[in-house]
């Protein structure tokens, strides 16, 4: 089953030491080596986000992320895991797992 691991982070938290980029590379490689990696990308900072709503055929473009909350989506992985426990184990091993919040959702299968 495919699961999305959505990574949420608090950008205001500058006190905590973040994992070096090399850790992310190693983590992604370990997913690839295990044959579970399907996709995964980090996203640029929230001030690059643009929110669009189309209502009644009219486009409204707003600068900034969809929801102004403390924790923002900063990246994602899509992985192929046997079950939720396996997906949770991968998520727990992610760099900065101790700082971020990770949402695990099955990808809709058609």
């Amino acid at each position: 089953m495919s699961y999305a691991l959505l990574i949420y982070s608090n950008p205001d938290d500058s006190t905590s030491e973040r994992a070096p980029y090399a850790d992310w590379g190693a983590y992604t490689q370990s997913m690839k080596d295990a044959g579970v990696f399907l996709a995964g990308e980090p996203l640029q900072a929230k001030d690059t986000a643009t929110t669009l709503r189309v209502r009644g055929g009219k486009r409204t473009v707003i600068d900034g992320p969809f929801a102004e909350t403390k924790e923002l989506l900063i990246g994602f992985y899509i992985l192929d895991a046997a079950d939720l426990d396996a997906a949770l184990d991968w998520a727990a091993r992610m760099p900065d797992a101790g700082l971020n919040s990770l949402e695990i959702r099955p990808v809709m299968a058609f």
Binding site: D83, L84, A86, P106
Partner: peptide
Amino acid sequence: AATRIPFELPTAPN
């Protein structure tokens, strides 16, 4: 069923 919670014994660390 939707999130596929397994019918398995937890692994040792968990």
